[in-house]
Design a protein around this nucleic acid. Structure first.
Lengths: 155, 155
DNA sequence: AGTCAATGTTGGTAAGACCAACATAGCAAA
DNA sequence: TTTGCTATGTTGGTCTTACCAACATTGACT
């Protein structure tokens, strides 16, 4: 899943960028293991797309891409896989025949709920070393760290 | 560099694993931009290897791999690039002719110092939204989060 | 001497995040 | 209305990080 260094150079090991990358490696390793075991071959793109469809209702592929931050071409590929598993349906928008309307199916909703459970369990594993107060702090700090990004992407 | 989602599904956006992945995207984006502008074509593998050589002295490729957490095959490739830039030298270990002894050159040390400056500047950019106290908290929380991993990799 | 582990190398894979180019569809300005 | 721009979905790439498998060679242990 991940080969952590056994010592790590001193100039590297306390730098925030390094800690962030190790934290990400740990988190994404656990996530990958979870998808591997319980995700039926789906990955994070699929999960994000199912979640977006469930929460925002039917949407075009371009809108899904913009909403989830996934590139149009990757949306196409991921939706093809979801469609082949009958988790979503694609139909041509009658008002704009170039556009597809993507809808989540009942089976897709079911799959999404299962993935929700798996992913919730992984949050717990990732944060296990922290107390509840520390978890809240950690989350709040990341939200603050990312607020600038959100603002800039609004414009 | 990174296409942040414009909305992000609710079930995704507050999960720690998501925040961690966005934080990493931001951090590694800034890092990549820094390497792009000032790194003369080097990337993080090169930096980690130079740092390891500078701090621990000459080492075999296998030791470098274990010490830095970089796979043997990736060490080979990265060292070849460093060698072609005369930032490291490789010579056969007389006591074990299968093994290479890798040494950082003065030019390599020089390059490492330049990269140090670039990377230090990026720490500042990454943490900019946080106060000093928050930065310390954030770092401490990640260290705690990763402590378990370090223990397990010792055994 | 024979087996086994370590070393460096080649070549491959996978996910995530990108980009360029294309045909088609609709819109808007000329 | 024709021309030109933009949006859409699709195909087919690239790149980085992180892996794994296989191989010949080398040395060490039995």
């Amino acid at each position: 899943m991940d080969h952590p260094p056994s010592r790590t150079p001193a100039r590297v090991k306390d730098r925030p960028t390094w800690l962030i990358s190790r934290t990400f490696a740990r988190s994404s390793g656990l996530l990958a293991a979870g998808f591997e075991s319980y995700g039926r071959g789906l990955r994070s793109y699929h999960y994000r797309l199912l979640a977006a469809l469930d929460e925002w209702g039917p949407a075009s592929q371009a809108d899904l891409g913009r909403g989830t931050g996934i590139d149009r071409s990757d949306v196409t590929a991921a939706l093809a896989e979801l469609e082949s598993r009958r988790l979503v349906e694609r139909s041509v928008d009658p008002e704009h025949r170039r556009r597809n309307i993507v809808t989540i199916t009942p089976a897709g909703v079911q799959q999404l709920l299962e993935l929700d459970n798996v992913i919730d369990g992984i949050q717990e594993q990732v944060l296990k070393p922290l107390t509840n107060a520390q978890r809240r702090q950690f989350i709040a700090l990341m939200v603050k760290l990312l607020a600038a990004e959100d603002e800039s992407s609004m414009g």
